[in-house]
Design a protein around this nucleic acid. Structure first.
Lengths: 150, 150
DNA sequence: CTTGTAGGTGCAAATGATTGCAAGTAGGAT
DNA sequence: ATCCTACTTGCAATCATTTGCACCTACAAG
């Protein structure tokens, strides 16, 4: 069974309809490594399905996120990117709110955090892909000097 | 010294110019408790400064976020909200990626996490206001049944 | 106080994203 | 296989947000 078929089945099993458009968008995101904008996903998917509409891509990515199959990454510039949720490679992002620099880190300490949130709040954390905002090493020393980018 | 003047001074100390527009927007956000959309902030601020332009509000909120004085909260619906960063009341949000329900929780376990990120990555976490995505108690049981909102 | 200028603002255009609606269709029932 | 309908899609309109540019101004220097 191909990668695309497997993902389509997974989506069907979650109770969602699998239309040709959704299958193509899901497969496109899966084959594009890393994080990509809606326009990038649309451009690529349209090669496989001419006539695809960008509104459909917006709707589908949103649906895939709700279904837990796609991650949304937002930077300070509010550039929203998408990537296939990869249970085999959990990773976290540190995004500097000043310069938008992005660091990727392996998960640490999160299992304990996830357990606590589950027990105390009944909340199931998406702890395979998280994003944190803060200041990177460089901008932090600038902040101490009062020299952030005005 | 008034609240507004104090915040304006804080901004000036961070190396940013304090224009009438910025002072009003900052004070407006400070006096609006909770999280509010750009339109809400703009409507309120314009009462104090007729002629204020919404583009200025967008630019100023972005600048205030970079300066670390305002938090940005994004839900699944990508409704971006702003609130004054309140060092006296750190709090975290749990946002269900299915139904958008938001839970607010007191910070737990994060000091250790923040310390680790600092030591290992030199990253200064904005750990007074964080947002986590996942599934709430209700949607989680639906997910187990394959019954998420299609 | 005046002056100069780097940065900020208002405006309108452009771009990104969402939404209402008519037509199409995935998939369940028979 | 056919039929039916709840849901999806394409389209264009609308809304949210960003951006280029001309003009304005906060603030540093003198």
């Amino acid at each position: 069974m191909s990668c695309g078929a497997r993902l389509a089945n997974e989506l069907r099993q979650k109770g969602y309809r699998v239309t040709p458009q959704r299958a193509v968008i899901l497969e496109t995101v899966a084959h594009m490594h890393g994080h990509h904008s809606v326009q990038e996903v649309f451009t690529k998917a349209e090669q496989s399905l001419p006539g695809l509409n960008v509104a459909t891509v917006y709707r589908t990515l949103d649906m895939l996120h709700r279904a837990g199959m796609v991650e949304i990454l937002s930077t300070t510039a509010n550039i929203t990117c998408f990537s296939l949720r990869d249970p085999e490679h959990p990773h976290y992002h540190l995004i500097c709110r000043n310069c938008d620099a992005m660091q990727e880190i392996e998960p640490v300490l999160f299992n304990e955090l996830a357990d606590t949130l589950k027990k105390k709040h009944g909340f199931s954390l998406d702890h395979r892909h998280l994003t944190f905002s803060g200041l990177c090493k460089h901008c932090q020393s600038d902040a101490a000097k009062g020299n952030l980018t005005p």
